[in-house]
Design a protein around this nucleic acid. Structure first.
Lengths: 216, 216, 216, 216
DNA sequence: CATGAATGAGATTTCATTCAT
DNA sequence: GATGAATGAAATCTCATTCAT
């Protein structure tokens, strides 16, 4: 979480850290914008500073180094994603899950492009890989529990274990995330709707099977 | 450093019996290895040269610039993938498709990591994006025709149009490709088998439906 | 080498009381000196940095790139030349014009060599050509107006239109500028005086003509 | 002269050196074309080889190094100019002198641009400067003798020593040569004619003076 | 003879980082 | 606390030159 970094810093007496936190958030937004537009490999602290309208000194003042900036960015993104999952966790609804995904795209068109850039580099950023793995495992467990509930209620096919289904759906999401920036025209709302419907159909209960049955 | 290389081996100038094509292939292999190990963002011509045991000058002798090197690499990778698809195109067999995918991994563990790095940067490499789009469309059309044949033969569910199914499977493949380098332990053979089986089950014909029917 | 510089003087990082404008001027001076001594084709940012006693990084901090540096240099030179022309514009005196030219040489022996190098490359520096053309047109118009006034006052021959005379004098100036660095011994003060006198004689009124007459 | 280099080489027994000489001439033509189009500073042996349709090896085979190539180019250009002067040396005709100049432009539009690039760099090419100085002195002496004859015949003003007049005319020629590539639109035939006429007028005998008189 | 592969130095440029002010 | 000047390393690319074939 971004908060951790804040507690590691020297605690400023009395004065609210609001400014500090706000400035960091501002820089993270600039960083996301740069990564989305130019790609991770072409992103630099200079460009982030320029986009945020401040000097390079400011960036390295608020973030010890590039790694910290990128990690903080990833953290904030995963926090957003977490919050999004919380919203659907209670409802046992696969379709709602996908629609949350799409809602993110509408809110912030950079969200998935940035995520995919961060993920692509996760492996090569040591401070990064472990943390992403941990977060990802959580997502999958949320997916799994939603699908499990669905199986119990008979709204999800139960011939495939929920954790494998979760893996499949997560992979599909990752695949879309990856291709969306490359072929945006394949992901217009009217093309996405049938894709979502098809995904829902894939995990729907099989017609001939008894809805009451758990996977044998 | 090129200096180091000089002390390690006899410096050979002049004109060896150069096989232009072979040397290019050698350099592409080195480039793939660097990208797989260090990531696209950290790959440099220097490192490629070092890995290939030559100077950066030699690299730029064979490839006018970095872009050309990377594009040639992408092309060779897509050619490999194409050949792989040709092998399964005739056989109407979804499982074989997945298994080809896995076979690639066994042959050349760098194959999918490199592919995912290239894809992640496709958007930001203008010379690249169009070409990848074209190739990708071909893959999907092969997937689609395999699935269509499967639907005709009753071995693939026909409640979802073949092109949408193809999109789903392609996205799943992309998602795995992306996560494989990050969490390799999730993709051990014993974990992959059930994943493949589950994917095959997802597209299997629905039990209650008449196998003869085409999608209405 | 930057390393040498490091051992010669204390390495100063951080933020000195920098005067941006002054530092740029300093670098421009260094650039002029390098160009005068080594020629445009052999001038490099490295050499400029060395001459200015800083690293190439510092140079590119003050000038985005080589083109910007060279253009700024040309601009400052043309500004100097402009100021010089302003000093003679009011006085209707062809001889004073030439003498200003010589004064520049005495002030700054690099002035004309640098100018000629810049001009020689103007054509091949796109950011440059247009700007030089514009400035040059101004010079010729100043020459023309001086000569026109001279013709009105009867101190300049009026059988040749002032603008053609201006062109001739400008070309002579350019020719001298070009040859001065190549054969400096032909441009010693004692050789230059008769040259100037001869040039003045060339544009002097023709003896037999009525001084009152304008060109017909 | 280019011939000198040919005699320095090992004399090939029996076989005519025509090929060798022709190949060198071909490369010189390519070099001239590259310099005219890209400027001296951007010219490289590679580009020369490319333009000549051969390999870099060929260039360095026919010319020991870059300096030799450039010097040979300058020599051939000055030879051409010499031949041109020979054509007017006999005729005591200032106008013919200028028209030869223009004829060169029509024959080979690159002639003066290349000359000006070579001259601009003469100073910084040690093997070059002395040789250009020598050649230039010859040109001026030809000019001087033409003007002297003109003074004797009363077709050239004799209030200014012929050698100074020659210097002025040479400088004007250099100035035009320098500006021609930069502002070609100022040197269209219809603009050049009045310029030439004006130059002729400048050196014409003064109206009131006795044509018989030599300079006092 | 002539080629063209390869070198090694150097040019331009970018960049994360440092640190005096 | 915050800035921005400056560094130094590295990256891409260009180039004249060398030399085995």
């Amino acid at each position: 979480m971004t908060g951790d970094a804040g507690t590691e810093r020297v605690v400023r007496r009395g004065r609210p850290t609001g400014d500090h936190v706000a400035k960091r958030a501002e820089l993270l937004k600039a960083a996301a914008s740069v990564i989305a537009q130019e790609g991770y490999a072409n992103a630099s602290l200079r460009k982030v500073a320029q986009r945020a309208g401040c000097t390079t000194g400011a960036v390295t003042y608020y973030f010890a180094n590039k790694e910290e900036l990128v990690t903080a960015l990833a953290e904030s993104r995963f926090d957003t994603y977490d919050a999004m999952l919380d919203a659907v966790r209670g409802r046992v609804d696969v379709k709602a899950l996908f629609e949350q995904w799409l809602a993110r795209t509408a809110d912030d068109p950079d969200f998935w492009p940035v995520m995919s850039q961060l993920l692509a580099h996760a492996r090569y950023e040591p401070a990064f890989a472990a943390f992403i793995e941990r977060r990802y495992a959580r997502f999958r467990s949320v997916y799994t529990s939603i699908l499990e509930s669905g199986q119990e209620q008979g709204t999800v096919r139960d011939d495939i274990p929920a954790d494998l289904l979760a893996d499949q759906l997560a992979a599909m999401g990752d695949g879309w995330m990856m291709m969306f920036p490359i072929e945006p025209e394949r992901f217009t709302p009217q093309r996405v709707r049938p894709l979502v419907d098809a995904a829902v159909a894939l995990v729907a209960p099989l017609p001939g099977t008894r809805p009451s049955g758990r996977r044998a």
